[in-house]
Design a protein around this nucleic acid. Structure first.
Lengths: 111, 111
DNA sequence: CCAATATTTAACCAGGGATGTAACTATTGG
DNA sequence: CCAATAGTTACATCCCTGGTTAAATATTGG
């Protein structure tokens, strides 16, 4: 029942700005403000995107101990892995065909 | 510039019915009507979903030679592969960390 | 305590996307 | 030629998402 995670991931990643955020966070944790400028979004817009990504559990947030105004966001790996698994499953029948083809070739080679 | 393909894939896969369609077509080609009943959608709704998936080049269509009223749809593998590559890239820094950890363990083991 | 910084919340608005119904096209089969 | 089948298109509607502006909250630094 990890399907939920996949569903939320796709729904939330429909937005190009949020895809960019995921991309950026893929390279490492970032602050909200940094993400805003990097994506060319206003602060309020970014705040909402982050809230959506949080509620979909695609990212996590932490307050910086030194400066509690700052908030850093981190990409969670679980949903990424879940989506990869989903795509693998979609590809399953191609893999099978590939397997069948391999067997076919092998049979030819050994004959 | 394969990023376009990824963008369209995510935008189009935001809809749960279309995700279902992709899932179903992952198991093999299907007709429009079959997909409609399988997903519990009306014929017009499915027709629209398929048109969207076609324009995003996620699927292809073929007319059946015997009965030209029928149309079968097939999942294209290219976008699936492209999205997998995208996710791999997002995961890149985790892989690095994993690599670093492995090296760390190896160093410990050999010492 | 005050000014500046970082981010969130609220209120509002415009556009897009999904759906159902009904009508239409194309094709098959008797 | 007509009835049935498969699918598409058009239209009206609804809702949801995303953006903006302005104000609020929280925290830091002088």
């Amino acid at each position: 029942m990890v399907d939920d995670e996949v569903d939320r991931f796709f729904e939330v990643l429909a937005d190009p700005t949020r895809r960019q955020v995921v991309r950026l966070l893929g390279e490492g944790p970032q602050r909200a403000g940094q993400l805003a400028v990097a994506t060319g979004s206003s602060a309020p817009a970014m705040s909402r995107h982050l809230r959506i990504l949080l509620s979909a559990e695609v990212i996590t947030d932490e307050r910086v101990p030194d400066d509690a105004r700052l908030r850093v966001f981190r990409l969670r790996q679980e949903p990424v892995v879940a989506v990869q698994a989903w795509l693998d499953q979609v590809q399953a029948h191609w893999q099978e065909q590939l397997g069948a083809f391999k067997k076919h070739v092998e049979r030819k080679e050994t004959s």
